[in-house]
């Protein structure tokens, strides 16, 4: 009996962890794209008004950012003249390409063109952020609950 109860608990724990991981991944994506939008805003305002040095804008932003974006910024600042390849398993292939294109476009043109490009990137990132944010609100916690229920169901079946 105790063994069976332990099995049920294990199944519940495992499925809850899977649910949590899934929820965390979704939240990660929402936070990442939110940070990207904020970065675009910061770049637009700094370039438009002060034409500040790119490295200093990025480093200032990264110092207060808690997402994976700060690591990507650090990778870009380490070798800004080489093509950036980011590591982000939580992003889809086309999203990764969009972020790489974004970094590639920084600092290579006059301010008017740069701001135009940033506005375009911001629009694209904002769309993804809105979609992911919506999905997370609707199904974020539901996934966790479903996982727990599945775990209980699996445990009961085993019993």
């Amino acid at each position: 009996m105790i063994t069976k109860l332990c099995i049920v608990c294990l199944c519940m724990t495992a499925s809850a962890m899977i649910g949590l991981a899934h929820m965390k991944n979704k939240k990660r994506r929402v936070s990442y794209f939110s940070s990207l939008v904020k970065l675009c805003d910061k770049l637009i305002s700094e370039i438009a008004f002060r034409k500040e040095n790119l490295n200093s804008i990025l480093k200032e932003f990264a110092s207060s950012d808690n997402t994976e974006l700060s690591a990507h910024i650090a990778a870009f600042c380490d070798s800004p003249y080489s093509e950036l390849k980011i590591r982000a398993p939580f992003l889809k292939a086309d999203e990764r390409k969009a972020v790489e294109d974004f970094f590639c476009s920084l600092g290579s043109t006059d301010s008017e063109t740069q701001i135009f490009q940033l506005e375009n990137h911001k629009r694209r990132f904002n769309e993804t952020y809105s979609d992911e944010s919506e999905k997370f609100k609707k199904s974020g916690s539901m996934g966790l609950k479903l996982s727990v229920l599945l775990g209980i169901a699996a445990g009961i079946l085993i019993l």
């Binding site: 490295n55 600092g107 290579s108 043109t109």
Partner: peptide, 16 residues
């Protein structure tokens, strides 16, 4: 191009 980009510290808009 590399010299120009390095000279402007990858901030061409700042020295356009």
């Amino acid at each position: 191009r590399e010299i120009v980009m390095r000279a402007c510290d990858k901030s061409l808009y700042a020295v356009n």
